[in-house]
Write a protein that binds this DNA or RNA. Structure first.
Length: 204
DNA sequence: GCAATGATTTACT
DNA sequence: GTAAATCATTGCC
């Protein structure tokens, strides 16, 4: 069952981030239907410095974060990678969940083709830039609604108890000072598809 | 207008 | 382990 507006509009972005684990991310790009199970997420909020819309900063780019719940926020990172987020909370409240890793489910061949890979490895989708490419998500999906387009998230009856979820500091947000320590990264403990993180800016 | 930088990945050594 | 790739957005001049 496709997730509805009510799922995304709830006020606690970390709760939504946790509950997105085990859900199925589905895209239908250029006639290729692909999907993967979400195994790693991060929460972002206007209340903390790691967020692009920190302190309610509105610019052309961050405007999407103030949009209605269930809107996709796709932005270019390091000039190369498209990172996929889902906007949560009420309209004009800038919060979002970054999808960091998925377990490939349907049409894995098409995903490998998009990533130029010959054999199936976890590196197909174990990172935010990687899964976007595998799923065919690019800048053109920015500000698209997940409630009524060719990209959406489904509930497939999987949910995790808190002892099956790892809660940790987010990756690559060292610039956010004290907010970089918030345990707002969530991943499925048993999954081998979780990203390895980024040692470069790792916080001790 | 211009310079700095990043919610990363990949290919080297 | 280290570094290059690569560019939209941002903030300051």
């Amino acid at each position: 069952m496709k997730l509805t507006f009510d799922f995304y509009q709830r006020p606690d972005v970390t709760l939504v981030a946790r509950e997105l684990l085990g859900k199925l991310l589905v895209t239908n790009v250029n006639g290729e239907h692909t999907s993967g199970i979400i195994v790693e997420t991060e929460a972002y909020s206007y209340r903390e410095k790691a967020c692009h819309a920190y302190n309610e900063r509105r610019t052309k780019r961050t405007e999407v974060l103030f949009a209605d719940a269930g809107t996709a926020y796709v932005y270019l990172c390091y000039g190369i990678h498209s990172l996929f987020n889902v906007v949560t909370n009420k309209i004009d409240v800038a919060e979002a969940v970054l999808i960091r890793a998925v377990e490939p489910k349907e049409n894995i061949e098409a995903m490998m083709c998009r990533r130029n890979m010959k054999e199936l490895k976890t590196s197909l989708t174990n990172g935010p830039g990687k899964l976007s490419k595998a799923m065919g998500i690019d800048q053109s999906y920015n500000s698209r609604s997940l409630l009524k387009s060719d990209i959406w998230i489904e509930d497939i009856g999987v949910s995790y108890h808190s002892n099956e979820i790892i809660s940790d500091a987010r990756i690559g947000v060292g610039y956010a000072q004290e907010d970089a320590l918030l345990p707002w990264r969530f991943s499925v403990k048993e999954s081998i598809w979780v990203s390895k993180g980024n040692n470069k800016y790792k916080i001790i």
